[in-house]
């Protein structure tokens, strides 16, 4: 049955070569640490999905933001779960991305030919941090308000353009409705666009170049030239 359906689509879409290239390729023998990247990806999907769900009830205005978040948490079925997944997912994303990066550094996987993968990965880390920072304000509770007040104030110490940067980030001198809407816009449009672009390149390269093999210790590496000579 499944095969018939598969065939029907194959004749009309020609998906099998793509599937073969993506899934049925060989990769070097890897260990469990290589799952950190895909775990990060899964959490990212979780963030996108729960984030989209949250926008269904959330209103980014100082009058409504807190009430709507409270409504989601306390009154909507499974609202606590969706918000909880988004909240903890944000932390998990940072943790997993960090561990993933440590794995890459330990394996020297940023070396040739994977430099671009490494650059996009760093970009993704920065975007993740920016997500955390902008998302923190959205519930418009005390913690959100004051942490963002302090966080944006840090921009002021930049020489020369500091005060301008502060006003740019806040959309004015003080934290206000304008700050909330621009953080919202950043959080649900600008940053996701950047995220998807970078993830797209990152994933493409993972498939195209292949993931690095776990390197071997010094002895074997130093022996390698000999092997080659013999070959």
């Amino acid at each position: 049955m499944m095969e018939k359906i598969g065939l029907w689509f194959e004749e009309r879409m020609g998906w099998r070569p793509i599937w073969t290239a993506l899934a049925l390729r060989n990769i070097p023998k890897v260990n469990w640490f290589y799952t950190l990247g895909s775990a990060t990806l899964l959490v990212m999907i979780n963030q996108i999905l729960t984030g989209i769900l949250l926008t269904i009830y959330y209103v980014p205005s100082p009058q409504d933001a807190y009430s709507s978040v409270s409504f989601i948490t306390n009154e909507i079925t499974a609202g606590w779960l969706i918000r909880g997944l988004h909240h903890w997912g944000a932390s998990a994303m940072v943790v997993l991305a960090g561990l993933h990066m440590i794995r890459v550094v330990v394996h020297g996987a940023y070396k040739f030919p994977r430099e671009v993968t490494w650059f996009t990965g760093l970009g993704l880390l920065a975007v993740t941090m920016a997500f955390g920072f902008t998302g923190y304000l959205l519930p418009w509770d005390q913690k959100a308000y004051w942490a963002t007040t302090v966080g944006t104030r840090m921009l002021e110490v930049v020489p020369v353009i500091g005060p301008w940067l502060l006003r740019f980030a806040r959309g004015g001198e003080e934290l206000s409705a304008v700050t909330l809407t621009r953080f919202y816009g950043m959080h649900i449009w600008v940053l996701p666009a950047a995220l998807l672009l970078l993830v797209g390149i990152h994933m493409f390269l993972v498939v195209r170049i292949g993931i690095s093999a776990p390197p071997k210790a010094a002895e074997s590496e130093s022996e390698e030239p000999d092997v080659e000579v013999e070959a």
Partner: peptide, 10 residues
Amino acid sequence: GAPLEERANP
């Protein structure tokens, strides 16, 4: 849970 404190009070 998903923590939510008091409404922001500037």
